[in-house]
Design a protein around this nucleic acid. Structure first.
Lengths: 232, 232
DNA sequence: GTCTATAAGCCGATAGAC
DNA sequence: GTCTATCGGCTTATAGAC
């Protein structure tokens, strides 16, 4: 049966396992057309098997969605945690979270997680919501720390968290790849806007991305591709 | 046949016209479940008519979506234009756009416009995209003016526009009404964050919402409810 | 594990009576 | 303008052979 772990690769290089082909096809289709608009025939055809064979790997179509969402959430939580823990200060931590989120959403179809929670039934929804809350807690923690340290100036940290996340989520709606340099540009522009939005400052003057002496954007690309290794 | 104008009321108070009931039911269902997940039987039942009668008012299900999206886009363009033209300076204009957008998205199911463009066919999509571009041009104009006036500090105004719009769109995903005072609080928090994100400043110091001496939030609520009068 | 065949029901849309 | 009845096709999911 499908599970988050089973998304990871493990077959000999060259030909993907049937399971991985199914998950890959489903993710691609769900992301582009929406869960409700994708039929299992379509998934089966894209994975080059029959619809009946599909049911050897999954119990219901919704299981497929849950497996994909769980996998994506766990991967981005992993990547975000790594990025956060690389620095102790809230400003650099925030930049890490933004860069990871933007890069992950631009390079992988992670938008399904944000958009398809409503497609989940009452039994599966709470599990995904819990993962989403875990991820949001990461952001909330950084914002609260930054406020306590006097780095951020936020009147409504909870609303700021939601604003930042939605602003970064939006990337999936308009970003289309134009090379790695372009992705870096977008990720850094968003990191800069996040610093501005949170009112980040040091010694009374506005803190900009360039002031933080961070490693090049490729560092964050590496974190994301690491956490998404063998991802579908 | 359905059109944006026909959404406006005109019947004697008390009982809505069949047309309005249909549009109202469709909008509510599309917004909560997504266009693809809603059947015409469901719309018909919610509007208390048969599916056949539905086809007296529309040609296809997609027509229904197009009519709703066109209506919403035109209304928010109207409201945003009014809010923008109340002040000549870019900072107050930006605050007006943000407040109108947040209030409209929180009080009306305007999220369909943002989320369902992918459900449109190749014939209807360009018409909605054109309206969306018109609305975005309003935002872009304010950002460009503010930059020219030295009020905003933006390295990537086009990305800033997208970030601001997505951040405001996100309100539909988490906002649930807790009274008018709460909506004002959210709208003003977002206006403040927009000023911060754009690096708004005057005489070298950061420009905050309170510095702008704007009328109470009810003014923007009035603009929105005016533009959305008789809206479904 | 994968197939063909099919069940049971919903899909958008239409015919034709009133 | 609204109805009942229905078309052809698609939906999720299953039975049973191999």
């Amino acid at each position: 049966m499908l599970s988050a772990e089973s998304v990871h690769g493990g077959t000999t290089a060259g030909s993907d396992s049937t399971e991985k082909r199914i998950l890959s096809a489903a993710l691609r289709l769900f992301a582009s057309k929406g869960y409700g608009a994708v039929g299992i025939r379509e998934i089966a055809q894209e994975a080059a098997i029959s619809t009946a064979a599909l049911y050897h790997y999954m119990r219901t179509k919704e299981d497929l969605l849950v497996a994909l969402m769980t996998d994506r959430m766990q991967r981005i939580i992993d990547a975000a945690t790594i990025a956060r823990d690389e620095y102790p200060d809230a400003a650099r931590r925030l930049v890490g979270l933004v860069r990871v989120h933007v890069v992950a959403h631009a390079r992988f179809p992670d938008g399904v997680v944000d958009n398809e929670v409503r497609s989940l039934g009452p039994e599966t929804r709470p599990r995904i919501i819990a993962l989403r809350d875990e991820y949001q807690a990461l952001w909330e923690g950084v914002l609260d720390d930054g406020r306590a340290q006097g780095v951020f100036e936020l009147e409504e940290p909870r609303l700021a968290k939601l604003a930042l996340l939605e602003m970064c989520n939006g990337v999936v709606h308009w970003y289309s790849p134009r090379g790695a340099a372009d992705l870096d540009r977008v990720a850094d522009a968003f990191a800069g806007m996040a610093l501005a939005l949170t009112g980040a400052s040091r010694a009374g003057s506005r803190l900009r991305l360039a002031d933080l002496d961070l490693p090049p954007a490729s560092r964050y690309l590496a974190i994301v591709t690491g956490a998404y290794r063998d991802a579908i």
